[in-house]
C-alpha cells in the first residue's frame, strides 16, 4: 500500500462525513495497515486504550464461576456464599468421602452375609456416620488456610454450616442410596436420618474444641459402640421406635443450642468456629 490516511480524512471518517466509497476505502486500508491503525490513536481520547484495558483485565482475571458455583447459584445460593463453599474445590473431598463411605457401608450391610438383625444393626451403625464424616472433612478441607481465615470478620459458624450444608447435599442422597440398593432395608430407609442429625450436630459442637480427625474418631467409635451394645442386648429396634427417633430430634435441638452458645460466648480458641 502506498498511501496513508491523512488528518482531514481521519476527522471526516470519525465524524461519519466521508462519502461511502471513501469510507469503504479507509476501512479496507485500516485492516492491513499497522501505521494507520497506530495513527488512529490520535482520533480518540488519550486514555481510551487504558480504560478499555482496565475493564478487560477486570473481566478476564475475575474467576468465571465454575460449574459447581453456577449450579449452586441456580439452586438459590447467594454468589458470595458460592465463592465460600467452592473455594479451592474444598467441597470435592467431603463429597468423595461421603460417596466412598456410603459404598463401603452398602457393601458391608448387603454383602457380608449377616443375619437380618445384625444387618439392620450394621446399617444403623454405619449410615448415620456418612453425613458425620462428610461434615467433619468439609471442616478440615481448608485447614491450611485457617491461619488466614481466623482473623477475618466472617462468621466461622456460618462458614462451617455452609460447608456442612454443601457436604450434606451429597452425603444425604448417598446414604439414601444404601437403603435403596441393599434389599430388605425399606423399613429402615429413613430411620437413620434422626440419629444422623444428632451425630452431625454433636460433631460440630466437638469441632469447637477438638481437631477434625479426633472428632471423627470419637463420634464414630461412640456411635458404633452404642449400636453394638444394643445389638448384644437385642434392643436395636429401640433406635427406630417413635420414642427413640423423637429422642434424637430433641437431642439435636439441645446440640443446636449448645453450638450457638458455644460460638457466641467463645473466648478466643485455636479451633474457634
Amino acid at each position: 500500500m502506498t498511501w496513508h490516511i491523512d488528518a482531514p480524512v481521519w476527522e471526516a471518517y470519525a465524524e461519519g462525513r466521508l462519502e461511502p466509497a471513501a469510507e469503504l476505502s479507509v476501512e479496507s486500508h485500516l485492516v492491513g495497515c499497522p501505521e494507520c491503525r497506530s495513527a488512529a490513536r490520535s482520533q480518540v481520547p488519550a486514555r481510551t486504550a487504558d480504560a478499555v484495558w482496565s475493564d478487560v483485565r477486570l473481566t478476564i482475571s475475575a474467576p468465571s464461576p465454575s460449574l459447581p458455583q453456577r449450579a449452586m447459584q441456580r439452586l438459590g445460593v447467594a454468589p458470595d456464599d458460592a465463592v465460600v463453599i467452592s473455594a479451592a474445590d474444598a467441597f470435592l473431598v467431603p463429597w468423595a468421602v461421603a460417596v466412598g463411605f456410603a459404598v463401603v457401608s452398602a457393601c458391608v450391610v448387603g454383602l457380608a452375609g449377616l443375619g437380618p438383625a445384625s444387618r439392620d444393626a450394621a446399617f444403623l451403625a454405619l449410615a448415620p456416620l456418612v453425613p458425620v464424616l462428610a461434615v467433619v472433612t468439609s471442616y478440615d478441607a481448608l485447614d491450611p488456610l485457617r491461619e488466614l481465615m481466623a482473623p477475618t470478620p466472617y462468621s466461622k459458624l456460618r462458614l462451617a454450616l455452609l460447608r456442612a450444608a454443601a457436604a450434606l447435599a451429597v452425603a444425604v442422597p448417598a446414604t439414601m442410596m444404601i437403603g435403596l440398593v441393599v434389599p430388605h432395608m425399606d423399613d429402615l430407609a429413613l430411620a437413620w436420618l434422626a440419629p444422623a442429625l444428632g451425630l452431625t450436630l454433636a460433631a460440630l459442637v466437638l469441632l469447637t474444641w477438638l481437631e477434625a480427625w479426633v472428632t471423627a474418631v470419637l463420634v464414630a467409635s461412640a456411635w458404633v459402640t452404642v449400636v453394638a451394645l444394643l445389638r448384644v442386648g437385642d434392643r436395636v429396634d429401640a433406635l427406630t421406635t417413635p420414642l427413640g427417633q423423637v429422642a434424637f430430634v430433641v437431642a439435636a435441638g439441645g446440640l443446636v443450642l449448645a453450638l450457638v452458645l458455644r460460638t457466641s460466648t467463645l473466648r478466643l480458641q485455636g479451633g474457634e468456629l
Binding site: Y13, E27, P34, R37, R41, V44, V52, V56, R57, S61
Partner: peptide, 22 residues
C-alpha cells in the same frame, strides 16, 4: 500472558472503536 493482551489492546483499541462507532 496478560502483558501481551495489554499490548494488543494498546495497538488496536482506537481504530476498532472508531470503526465500531460507524
Amino acid at each position: 500472558d496478560e502483558a501481551a493482551l495489554r499490548e494488543l489492546v494498546e495497538r488496536h483499541s482506537a481504530w476498532l472503536l472508531l470503526r465500531l462507532r460507524r
